[in-house]
Simulated assay, not measured.
Amino acid sequence: MKSAVFLLTFYFAGAYSEQLCDYPPSDWCSTWEIAKACKVEQQCIEYHSRKDFLKSNDPAVQVELYYESLCGGCRKFLVLQLFPTWLMLNEIMNVTLVPYGNAQEQNVSGKWEFTCQHGPDECYVNTIEACVMHHLKEIPSYFPVIFCIELSSNVTSALGPCLAAYQPDLSVKTVMDCANGDQGNKLMHENAMKTDALNPPHEYVPWVVINGKHSDSLQDRAMSALFNLICETYTGPKPDACSGKAVTPMKRDSVCLN
Rank of each mutant, 00 (worst) to 15 (best):
L82M: 13
N107E: 13
W32C: 00
R75D: 15
Q42V: 04
N102R: 02
L54W: 06
G110C: 03
I45R: 10
K36I: 08
F83R: 02
A60F: 03
C71I: 00
N107P: 06
A60I: 01
K76D: 15
L82R: 05
P25E: 03
N102G: 14
F114M: 03
V61M: 14
V40G: 09
Q42T: 06
L80D: 15
L78N: 15
M93A: 11
C44Q: 00
S26N: 08
W86R: 04
N102T: 00
D58A: 05
D52L: 06
P59E: 11
E33I: 09
S26W: 01
L54K: 01
C71Y: 06
T31R: 04
N102A: 03
G101F: 03
T31C: 04
I45L: 14
Y47T: 00
S56R: 03
T31Q: 04
L80P: 02
Y67C: 02
H48K: 12
A37L: 06
S26A: 10
L87M: 15
I92Y: 12
V98L: 07
F114L: 05
L78R: 05
P59K: 10
N102E: 02
G110E: 09
T85D: 11
L70Q: 03
V40N: 06
V40L: 07
Y67N: 12
Q62R: 08
K76P: 09
C29R: 00
H48Y: 13
D52G: 01
Q106T: 08
Q106L: 14
A60W: 01
Q62D: 13
Y100E: 04
N90D: 13
V61P: 04
M93G: 02
Y67R: 10
L80C: 09
G110L: 06
D52V: 01
T96M: 08
N90S: 15
